[in-house]
Computed example of a mutant assay.
Amino acid sequence: MTATIIKETEIHMEKGLQALQRELGQIRAGRANASILNGINVEYYGAEVPINQVASISIPEARVILVTPFDKSALKDIEKALLMSDIGINPANDGSVIRLVIPQLTGERRQELAKEVGKIAETAKVGIRNIRREAMDKLKKQQKNNEITDDEMHDLEKQVQKITDQNVQGIDQIAAKKSEELVEV
């Protein structure tokens, strides 16, 4: 039972790190990144489908995203979806592909984005700490019900804290990498 609590804690924290990476991947750093198109759906034959299911997405240059539809008749729908999205980039349609040119970031905008990265990372840390608290509560409940001894409780608390520390360190590394990416562009 206690092993499953530790395993669940690891899994939940890992999912927290993955969510952080997805969220930070959508922040534009002045460089082309296909993940900014995640979450954009295109109306295709009456159904809403993710853009990557109706087009191939490539990055031919550092600041250009190339969207090539699998079906040329979907080009207008893809362009419409990109215009309606909140990515803030006007698509350039040449009749067969759509180009998204990522604008150069100003120094001020870079600083704002770096602050935003810090806020998102702090929110992720709060999530990790909440997962730790839930695990500790479950362990304390088991201790109270005499399912585990005081010594086992002490060892399990150390394990949960170690996992927490590793994940908080992982958040710091991910955030530092993204902030560095924002500054160096």
Rank of each mutant, 00 (worst) to 15 (best):
G30Y: 02
M1K: 12
K140A: 11
E61S: 08
A29P: 05
P103M: 11
L75Q: 03
N38F: 05
V185H: 05
Q161E: 15
I78Q: 02
E23C: 04
Q169D: 14
L17P: 06
K80S: 14
E147F: 11
I59P: 03
I131V: 10
S35G: 02
Q104G: 10
T164Q: 01
S179Q: 15
P50C: 09
K80I: 03
E108R: 01
S96G: 01
T9R: 07
R129N: 09
E157P: 05
R133Q: 14
L156C: 05
V49A: 08
I40P: 04
K177Q: 15
Q53C: 07
I128C: 03
A55T: 08
E108C: 12
M153I: 07
N146Q: 15
A175W: 06
V117A: 07
I57W: 06
R28L: 09
V168L: 14
Y44F: 13
R63E: 01
I120L: 13
Q161A: 13
I78C: 08
I59H: 00
N38Y: 08
V54N: 10
R109M: 12
I36W: 05
I102V: 15
R99K: 12
A62C: 04
I120P: 09
V185S: 12
M13A: 12
A176L: 15
T4F: 12
E122P: 01
M136T: 04
V185I: 15
Q26V: 05
M1R: 11
R28T: 00
L139Y: 03
K162F: 11
K76L: 13
K119S: 13
T164D: 02
I120M: 14
Q104E: 14
A34H: 00
T123W: 01
A55N: 08
E48C: 02
G30C: 02
A3K: 14
H12P: 01
Q173C: 00
L75G: 07
M1V: 08
R99Y: 06
A55G: 09
I98S: 00
R63I: 05
P60L: 08
G88Y: 03
T2P: 03
Q159R: 14
K178Q: 10
I40C: 04
E181K: 09
T149D: 07
T123R: 14
T4L: 13
I57H: 06
N146C: 04
A74H: 02
M1T: 13
A121F: 11
D94H: 07
D137E: 15
